[in-house]
Amino acid sequence: MLLRFRVANVRSLRDEQELSFIEPEGESGVDGSANPVELAGGGTVGVFPLLAVFGANASGKSNVLSALGDMRHAVLNSYARWASYEGVPRHVFALNPKSEDEPSFFEVDIVIDSIRWTYGFELGADRVESEWLHSYPRGRRQEWLDRDASRTEVYRWPGGRVRDRSQLVRRTRPNALLLSTAGTDNHPQLSPLFHWFRRNLWS
């Protein structure tokens, strides 16, 4: 289940934009349109089953959905299909020449089997600049992955929760997402997140 999607420097979306299905605080149960979703750890969150995006013609409404498709494509295909690219295929904001030098940002908050996850990444022109994964199995954040291409130690694994880390790092190219590698290799812990993108988002 998708809770939030954030994006920046993609297509006609220059600054960070957020699409949220979460009921705002203080409005719980006001009109009954939000469905309560139980989370691991005992919490619940109100989630709207449907959203509408309004705006003038050519204001970028459809590009929000296209950006979701771009994120899905990167997760599912960057390991297998981007090997033929010298850099990273992406659609940056075209009306500012500086956008080509800035990363494209994608992040989702989702729920899989009552556990909330936050997963995101930044794509540069030549490589994946950063990638992160957080889980909330007991209502508190656990960091699983912290990737930063600007560091000497690109990959950090807080808590050591992910198995086969050295193999994942060895097989992941600079212009591929580690989640794409993990899903392609049927990694036991990370494949459910990979398959969420395959089953729940359409491009």
Rank of each mutant, 00 (worst) to 15 (best):
L190F: 04
Y119E: 00
A34T: 07
L201W: 13
L65H: 10
S59D: 01
D164P: 00
L39W: 01
R156S: 05
W157V: 10
V30Y: 13
L178E: 00
G41H: 05
A34E: 08
E86F: 11
E27S: 15
V169C: 07
Q17I: 09
G55R: 12
V10F: 14
L2G: 13
W196F: 08
Q142S: 06
E131I: 08
R147T: 03
E122Q: 14
A125F: 01
G69F: 06
I115M: 08
L177I: 02
D148L: 11
N9H: 13
L178V: 02
D113C: 00
L51Q: 07
D146T: 12
A83N: 12
D185P: 05
M1W: 02
Y79Q: 12
H73D: 02
L19K: 01
R4P: 02
W117H: 12
S180K: 05
V154T: 13
L68C: 14
P36S: 13
N175F: 10
Q189H: 04
E153M: 08
T184Y: 08
G87V: 10
L95F: 05
P188T: 06
R11P: 06
S191G: 05
S150A: 08
G29N: 13
W202S: 08
A52L: 13
R6W: 07
Y155T: 06
R6D: 02
E86C: 04
R11I: 00
